[in-house]
């Protein structure tokens, strides 16, 4: 018993050599969904390895918390899958460096000039509903005025990035009236979940009629399931912009390889893999090159977006309006 415990303790404290530092290995920190078999990771890895004569390795999990915990000793060469709401913190850490990527091919609905973060796909927050059961809503006001028996499920802005985007969206649309808007929505809110997956699960199980997700969500159902019954409600007031980013780590010992990967992110090769693996709009690919299910998706005419400074300044207030109205 005693020996077993000591052996296990020894195992835990053993110090294998760091695998870091191989000139030909590019270590990319990515969110969980990114590196899995059905995410964009594997096909991107194959495409990049075909041209770089290197080995691309993903480390999946909580990208930014991990990078911040590791600090300058991080093993990462590139991080991918960050969102705009964490860019301020990531930038201020000084752990990321400028990318030098040419943005002329970008096809985003907003202007993007950031010298640290390269966008690789985007979408907009949107409410998804079953079009065989509901008529849909053509404005945020229409959703707020919907009967109270329409059940909406959203994500918690304190634990979920899409939930945070929602409170910023409400803030962008209603400003000082946000709390009143939330109070109108409150009776329709079935529940609030920790993350996107739980909420979307409640929606597909039929527990909720409407779910907070993205304008690109119906594409999954159309392309992968040939199911045309899921639609995104497009609001006149506009939709909050949701973008995913990549950045180069300042302490990388593989600068050339990291630069090569950052440039690769905006090539048609990488971009054409995005729609049907990450179910988002590619950031640098003209719409006529998107897959069929994407080309026909309704997109909002107006796009709302707060810069990272604005979002950071508004965040606490926007969450508090949400919390106060929903805690009644």
């Amino acid at each position: 018993m005693q020996k077993t415990l000591l052996a296990v303790a020894g195992l835990m404290l053993a110090t294998p050599a760091f695998a870091d530092g191989h000139a030909n290995t590019l270590t990319v920190y990515a969110p969980d969904y990114f590196g899995s078999e059905w995410g964009p990771g594997p096909s991107i890895e194959a495409a990049f390895e075909a041209q770089c004569d290197c080995d691309l390795v993903y480390q999946t999990g909580d990208v930014l918390p991990r990078l911040l915990l590791e600090g300058e000793n991080t093993e990462a060469d590139v991080v991918i899958g960050l969102n705009t709401d964490v860019t301020k913190k990531a930038r201020e850490s000084g752990l990321l460096t400028t990318h030098g990527v040419d943005f002329s091919g970008l096809t985003l609905p907003i202007d993007w000039t950031d010298d640290t973060f390269v966008p690789f796909n985007y979408s907009h927050t949107a409410f998804i509903y079953d079009n065989t059961k509901l008529d849909g809503f053509d404005s945020f006001d229409a959703l707020l005025d919907a009967p109270d028996d329409v059940r909406v499920v959203i994500q918690d802005p304190r634990t979920s990035i899409s939930g945070l985007a929602l409170v910023l969206w409400v803030n962008a649309v209603y400003g000082d009236e946000s709390e009143a808007a939330w109070a109108k929505l409150a009776p329709k809110i079935l529940t609030v979940t920790k993350g996107w997956s739980e909420a979307y699960g409640l929606f597909t199980d039929g527990e909720a009629d409407v779910v907070l997700s993205f304008t690109t969500s119906p594409a999954y159902h159309i392309i992968a399931e040939e199911d045309l019954t899921k639609s995104a409600a497009i609001f006149d007031e506009g939709h909050y912009f949701f973008v995913e980013l990549a950045a180069k780590v300042a302490t990388t010992d593989n600068t050339d390889l990291a630069d090569q990967f950052m440039a690769f992110v905006l090539t048609p090769e990488f971009q054409s893999l995005i729609p049907t693996t990450n179910w988002s709009f590619p950031a640098a690919l003209p719409a006529d090159q998107w897959p069929d299910g994407f080309q026909s998706l309704p997109v909002p005419e107006k796009v709302l977006f707060y810069s990272e400074e604005e979002a950071a300044a508004l965040r606490d207030e926007a969450i508090e309006a949400w919390r106060a109205a929903l805690s009644q």
């Binding site: 590196g35 059905w38 995410g39 999946t60 997956s197």
Partner: peptide, 29 residues
């Protein structure tokens, strides 16, 4: 605790289930 330690190629069954959910594959999850 796996979230910080996870290796892309060494997922456990619950993590695989969450990944499936995160990729819209609710039935498979």
């Amino acid at each position: 605790v796996i979230a910080l330690f996870a290796d892309a190629d060494a997922a456990t069954l619950p993590l695989t289930m969450y990944r499936l959910m995160g990729s819209y594959r609710m039935e498979a999850a």
